[in-house]
Write a protein that binds this DNA or RNA. Structure first.
Length: 466
RNA sequence: GGCGCGGUAGCCAAGUGGUAAGGCAGAGGUCUGCAAAACCUUUAUUCAGCGGUUCGAAUCCGCUCCGCGCCUCCA
């Protein structure tokens, strides 16, 4: 089955292949580092991770650029309020963001680039746009004239031909001649950071950094540009206008947008008290894996209702898969192989792949895995699962985990060492042999307190981390 | 008001013309020193409501109700 994605540009699901070299040139909108990223942000960043893994699995090479917006109104305001320089302030949240990505096991883009490292290129691009007659200046700021770009609105599927200046109140303090015109360059204000690289003293508007950095690293036409659905308009629409007005080429072949996240059925907001960062969740003892699983399990184009019940469900589901893996690795099975099991494993693998190929239907992919787990567990109980079937079953699990990446527990820094666990298990086995169940239970309790769970099976003791 | 997305079991959620996946929770059972794990059985005659098209609709069309996003630099 071909790999297919829903393209916002065409509102259709289309077959995807990179334009050249078997390399996917992809740009994704990263965080604005004015605070810790929240769980809604990470829904989108998890979507990028899954996208990367799906593309890699297909054998494509990746050249993926993600930006860090480190100059912007809120950042400037907050940095000033803290008496810090822009760099001091954004460094803290950039570092926190990268740590959070690590905790969630997000596969890192080939390049993570900062807006402030590309001011000169942005100024050059603005000069280029001016040369093409797409801009105008007003009180030291430079604006993009959307009337100069006939395709404006093609991504968000809006018709702006009727929009006129003054059609709505402009809260921006800068003067524009058309309501939809947007700032490419904002004139310097007292006390605010500014640059003078050829566009006059000031700082870049939000949209220009993405167009400029994407083109610089990936070329004039990207294979994929992705972001949260709320960026479709105006951010991505404006990126298209800038880039295409400048190059005359289509900016990106595919536009992918991840849907919104809600919390307990409501819009997440600080005033409702349902606004969470990853740190908040980890502090409540939810594991990074269960957050990752929950975010990954709902297909990216469907609004995700993030609930604490959902987190607990995710943790239980992960446990089941880990237990299954443990059973495969530690169980004793009769020699030989089973043709039936070989077929089931092959069927599960192809169902898993097909679901992902279909615009990354992760929910359906999960169903294929769980169905296989149930089938093979039943076969094990019935004695029909053979030692020779372990490899193919582990392969299904490996396929799952190469995408979902939740089977390996995140170890705490104070975790007990494997060898110490094994030693206590040996002692407990002796205690059980002499029917000293009190000591046996005591050891199990001790280990449980250190997040290690013991299970007695007919093939002996096995253990796992909680 | 404009554009777009969605309403499937207690919760989460697949399925877009052929007779309701999967996960979690719940109930019963097998196994067990205890516990855990695992498995089996069970939980939607029905897919927001109404009408229509069709041999056949959760799936297509129309209307209604409800929720959400964007339309002011918010993933």
């Amino acid at each position: 089955m071909p790999l297919r994605f829903f393209n916002t540009l065409t509102l259709a699901t289309e077959e995807f292949t990179p334009q050249r070299d078997n390399t996917v040139r992809m740009y994704t909108c990263g965080p604005t580092v004015y605070d810790f990223a929240h769980i809604g942000n990470f829904r989108t960043f998890t979507f990028y991770d899954l996208l990367r893994r799906v593309l890699k699995r297909r054998g494509f090479k990746l050249d993926h650029v993600m930006n860090i917006t480190d100059v912007e109104d809120k950042i400037i305001r907050n940095a000033m309020a803290h008496g810090q320089s822009l760099g001091e302030y954004t460094e803290k949240y950039t570092k926190a963001f990268l740590e959070d990505c690590g905790a969630l096991r997000l596969d890192s883009p080939e390049r993570i680039v900062r807006a402030t490292d590309h001011i000169k290129e942005m100024a050059e691009a603005i000069t280029g746009l001016t040369a093409k007659g797409c801009t105008y200046e007003s009180e030291g700021s430079i604006y993009f004239r959307i009337a100069a770009f006939p395709g404006y609105g093609k991504l968000s599927h809006n018709d702006f031909t009727g929009i006129r200046a003054g059609a709505r109140v402009d809260v921006d303090t800068y003067e524009k001649t058309d309501a939809r015109d947007f700032a490419l360059w904002k004139a310097a204000k007292d006390g605010e950071p500014s640059w003078d690289e050829g566009a006059g003293p000031g700082r870049p508007g939000w949209h220009i950094e993405c167009s400029v950095m994407a083109i610089k690293y990936l070329g004039e036409t990207l294979d994929i540009h992705a972001g949260g659905v709320d960026l479709t308009f105006p951010h991505h629409e404006n990126e298209i206008a800038q880039a295409e007005a400048l190059t005359g080429k289509p900016f990106s072949r595919f536009w992918l947008h991840s849907e919104f996240l809600m919390v307990e059925g409501q819009k997440m907001s600080k005033s409702l008290g349902n606004y969470y960062t990853l740190r908040d969740l980890f502090a409540q003892d939810y594991s990074p894996e269960c957050v990752r699983y929950l975010l990954a399990s709902v297909p990216y184009r469907k609004a995700l209702n993030f609930t604490f019940d959902g987190l607990k469900s995710a943790a239980t589901a992960i446990e089941r898969l880990r237990n299954y893996k443990l059973r495969l690795e530690s169980g004793k099975f009769p020699a030989g192989t089973s043709e039936e099991m070989r077929i089931r494993a092959a069927r599960a693998s192809s169902a898993f792949e097909d679901a992902l190929d279909d615009d990354m239907n992760t929910a359906q992919a999960l169903a294929a895995v769980f169905e296989f787990v149930r089938e093979t567990n039943t076969a094990m109980d019935a004695g029909e699962f053979r030692a020779g079937d372990v490899a193919s079953a582990l392969d299904v699990l490996e396929r799952f985990d190469s995408l979902f990446d939740v089977l390996r527990p995140s170890l705490r820094s104070d975790a007990i060492a494997d060898a110490d666990v094994e030693a206590l298990i040996a002692e407990r086995t002796l205690a059980k042999k002499s029917r000293n169940f009190q000591r046996a239970d005591q050891i199990r309790q001790e280990l449980l307190a250190r997040e290690v769970v013991l299970e007695d099976t007919k093939d002996g003791v096995r253990w796992k981390r909680k």
